[in-house]
Amino acid sequence: MDIKKLSQLARIKLNKKEQESFSKDLESILGYIGKLKEAKIENAPELTHILAAENVFRLDEAPAEPFGNAAELLAAAPEKKKGFVKVKQVFNED
């Protein structure tokens, strides 16, 4: 398991010490999870919905109750500009 790669994928910075302790924890958890290899799953389908799922259609109309108000939702963001959530640049310049 490449802990550095995983922390990049998960967008979580880990310091050296944590990289070590997390690796150790994850190895032990994965060791336990390995138990699943013994399960006889050959004939089992993948369960994706716990209750019988049917597609539920609704008319293509605006909902009767509009969701919240935009200003209030926007207020939760740490940085905004002219009614938009502001983000930093995505790419490094160099």
Partner: peptide
């Protein structure tokens, strides 16, 4: 840059167990 903000915010403000599970799930 954006990615740095993501990674640092989540390093500082998510607790150890939350980070551990996110990484396990990512794996």
């Amino acid at each position: 840059i954006l990615e740095e903000i993501y990674a640092k915010t989540r390093e500082e403000a998510l607790g150890q167990e939350a980070r551990r599970r996110v990484i396990l799930g990512t794996y």
